[in-house]
């Protein structure tokens, strides 16, 4: 029968996972076995068309096996849809950098990073940058991080300040745009510009995620046909109320999950 092992089409006479392991002389120690997206320690039967991934812990696979291993826990047709998608991150602060990391791990095929700023120390309390990135353009620093997390996606960057006049040019090719700015006027400017120029484009925006109020107040709402808003809607950053990783991450998680749902064709919040 024909099966796939670590992404490669293979013929075998083995009818179970343990037989396959002995046929390929793979020791069971330090081994992770994934059958059709499900990790198992058992000697399960193997059928024609199955996808099997063997991962030897601590051993660096070659590049062709690596992508099969990274996507081994995804359901195959989900992975293919994700790979076709192109998502923009407008602003690469606490929200944008965190959404980008989640979508890179999920395997979204093209991520488009847009920001004009450089990484500075006050970013490190909630943004996905490290000491080594201080002084770098956020676009370049985050691209570096994302390529270390998932080398099988394409990261496109535009180091530019987003304004009314460059919105039509910057976001023309993106299927979904995440609004991930800090300033309320900039958030409104981007959402207005996108809705005017691209009424059919999906926007996933954020409002109300500062402080350490309950994380349970943060929710995703569909407010217009193609506008989703994540956050509690009211808790703004102001003098005496900061922005910190836990609540910013909750909101970024909401945004990333809404993006994933939209890619999979689910339009309800």
């Amino acid at each position: 029968m024909k099966i796939k092992i670590n992404g490669k089409a293979t013929s075998t006479d083995s009818s179970s996972l343990f037989q396959l392991m002995s046929e390929r002389r793979i020791a069971p120690d330090n081994l992770i076995v994934i059958l059709n997206g499900f990790q198992t320690p058992e000697d399960l039967p193997v059928h024609d068309g199955d996808e099997v991934v063997f991962i030897e812990k601590g051993k660096m696979p070659d590049r062709t096996e690596f992508e099969a291993m990274m996507s081994a826990r995804h359901t195959p047709h989900i992975y293919e849809k994700l790979k076709q998608a192109r998502v923009a991150l407008a602003g690469l602060g606490g929200l944008g950098s965190t959404i980008a990391v989640a979508l890179a791990r999920t395997g979204v095929g093209k991520l488009h990073l847009v920001d004009f700023d450089v990484v500075e120390p006050s970013n490190l309390n909630r943004q996905q940058y490290k000491i080594k990135h201080l002084g770098m353009k956020k676009t370049e620093a985050l691209k570096m991080e994302l390529e270390e997390i998932n080398p099988f996606i394409t990261v496109l960057i535009d180091t530019a300040k987003i304004a009314e006049d460059n919105i039509p040019h910057l976001f023309a090719e993106d299927d979904i745009v995440c609004e991930a700015f800090d300033q309320p006027d900039a958030k409104a400017m981007l959402v207005n510009g996108l809705r005017e120029h691209f009424p059919n484009k999906k926007i996933v925006a954020a409002s109300g995620l500062a402080g350490y109020e309950s994380g349970n107040f943060i929710a995703t709402k569909r407010l217009m046909k193609n506008l989703y808003l994540c956050g509690d809607g009211t808790t703004e950053a102001r003098i005496g109320r900061g922005l910190m990783a836990p609540r910013v991450s909750i909101c970024a998680g909401h945004q990333a999950n809404m993006v994933l749902r939209l890619i999979m064709g689910m339009e309800d919040a």
Binding site: G91, L95, D182, A188, A210, L227, E236
Partner: peptide
Amino acid sequence: NGRIIPKAQYEHKQVTDGDVLEVVCFVGGG
């Protein structure tokens, strides 16, 4: 009524009977 109103029209566009308006308001933080 399902269409965005450009900011440039806020001053002269009048609201008329039966209109359905959605106002989305943003607060700072990101």
